[in-house]
Structures are given as C-alpha cells and as structure tokens.
C-alpha cells in the first residue's frame, strides 16, 4: 500500500449538553507519499481534531480519509501516532514500549526484540533498552514515542505538537533528528505545531488554517533543501509572512488580539 493521504470534505461538530462546536468545516487536502506536511493554526482551531480523525480515534461528522486510495475506518497500525505528552506506558521498559505494536500484531519474540532494538538505535537510544520511562528526560521520552510509532512500519505518522513539551534547545535537536529518521524511509509525516519556526524548518509543505471552524487559509510549498538556515533572509521572511497570517486570524470578534500559542 502506498502512503498517500486523501482527505475529502472532512467536517466535525462536537455536541455537548450546552452547545454545538463546529471544530472543522469541509477540509480537503491531498498529501503525497513521503511528504512532510505541517499544520499550523490558531489555538483551538481544530488541528488535534484533524489528526485524530486521520488516526481513526475520532469519528468525523462527515467526509472521508483515504490512505493509498482505501478509506480508513477506525485506528490501525498503518497510521502511527506520536503524542505531545508522549503517552508512553510507564510500567514498560523502553524496549517493551517500542515492542508494543509488534506484540499486539503477534510478531514472534525474537523478531520483535531484534526489530525494536533496531529502531531504538535509530532514534539514538542505544543502551537505554531496559530503562524505565520515568528515568528518561523529555527528549528521550519522545524518541521512544517516535520509535514506538515507527517500528510497525506505518505508511503515515501523525504527530500532534510532539516537541511542544520540550525546551527550545532539545526541540531543535529533535527537529533535526526527525528529518534524519524519516529521510531514509518513505513514511508520510503529518505534523501539527504551534511553532512557525519549527514548521518552516522541517516542512515540505505548510498548511495554514483559519480560526475555528478550521478551513485552509493557505498552503505553502517549501522546496528548500535540508539542513535549513534559520537565520537566512528567505527563512525569516517566510516565517514573518506566516506569523502575519496567524495574527490576522487571531483578531477576535470583539477586536481584541488573541495569542498565537
């Protein structure tokens, strides 16, 4: 199966006792196999909702998500997920966390171990196989999260602000690491972030969303090679342009300005 994603007319309305929230309205996007697409948009505009619907964790109100031409129903190991708060299993060691997806798929023990070790190594955690989650730093935890999501060889990985809980320096390191890890594979990456800097640094394409209900404001192609220079004039210019867009989206109906984060 190939890893292209086709999102068609996706909408989501949350209904609670008091009110109905239209989180997403008629969202359509096509993503090529192997592409790294980031989604940026004002806080609360529906980014997490989009990722959860692609991941099959949230049922869309209408519209479809298709992977390699086949419509997705519910969650599955073909779409891996990386969470902002890592969502690692604290009762399992690093190795056992990474093995989880293989374990539930019934992969034999020896093969499981060998494959998990390969991925632990590729995220730079060699030697920490037997460490428990609470012994790791934030950056290391997310490395485990990435290895755990990649070990089942998903066609797509969905990352919801995966570096949002990390300090600025670790964040930059992790961005480079992510590019290094996904470069070798044809895995498609859909990446949600608050950080415009991060988006410009890693993306093949950036999707800028409007405020809620989210729809696409603009799609920006970035054909620049890696590694990118954060201080180059075109980098800062693009960053400023996207920030401007987000700021204009953040003007509240009552005229007050909201925050971007």
């Amino acid at each position: 199966m190939s890893g292209n994603i086709s999102i068609a007319n996706l909408s989501k309305t949350y209904k609670t006792d008091e009110k109905e929230t239209v989180a997403l309205w008629d969202f359509t996007l096509y993503i090529e196999e192997g592409e790294l697409v980031t989604i940026v948009g004002p806080s609360g505009c529906g980014k997490t909702t989009i990722l959860r619907m692609i991941g099959g964790l949230t049922e869309p109100t209408s519209g479809t998500v298709a992977l390699g031409g086949k419509i997705c129903q519910g969650p599955g190991p073909d779409r891996g997920m990386v969470f902002q708060d890592f969502a690692l299993f604290p009762w399992r060691s690093v190795r056992k966390n990474v093995e989880f997806g293989l374990e539930v798929a019934g992969v034999p023990k020896a093969e499981r171990r060998e494959r998990a070790e390969r991925y632990i190594k590729s995220v730079g955690l060699e030697g920490f196989e037997n460490a428990m989650v609470h012994e790791l730093s934030g950056g290391m935890k997310q490395r485990v999260g990435i290895a755990r999501a990649l070990v089942t060889k998903p066609n797509v990985i969905l990352m919801d602000e995966p570096f949002g809980a990390l300090d600025a320096q670790t964040r930059n390191i992790m961005q480079t690491e992510l590019l290094r890890i996904t470069e070798k594979t044809d895995t498609t990456v859909i990446f949600v972030t608050h950080s415009v800097d991060e988006a410009v640094y890693i993306s093949d394409r950036i999707v800028v969303l409007t405020k809620r209900p989210a729809s696409i404001k603009e799609v920006i192609d970035i054909p620049w090679p890696h590694p990118r220079d954060r201080s180059s004039p075109e980098f800062t210019a693009l960053r400023r342009r996207i920030l401007k867009m987000l700021e204009s989206e953040n003007i509240q109906p009552d005229g007050k300005e909201g925050s971007i984060a």
């Binding site: 991941g55 099959g56 964790l57 969650p75 599955g76 190991p77 779409r79 891996g80 997920m81 969470f83 708060d85 969502a87 690692l88 299993f89 009762w91 989880f100 997806g101 374990e103 539930v104 798929a105 755990r148 999501a149 089942t152």
Partner: peptide
C-alpha cells in the same frame, strides 16, 4: 490516561488487548 488507550489503539491493539495490556497493568 485516555492517551494510553489511544496510543494502544493506534498501535493496532484490539479491544481485548487494550483491556489486558493497558487497563489491567495501569490499574495494578
């Protein structure tokens, strides 16, 4: 944590596996 169950589901765990491999150990 709801995220533990979500993580398990996206890794391919079925209902029974979510119960035995997440809910059970998490409640120990």
């Amino acid at each position: 944590e709801p995220n533990w169950m979500d993580a398990a589901k996206t890794l391919g765990a079925n209902k029974k596996q979510v119960f035995t491999k997440v809910m059970l150990p998490a409640s120990v």
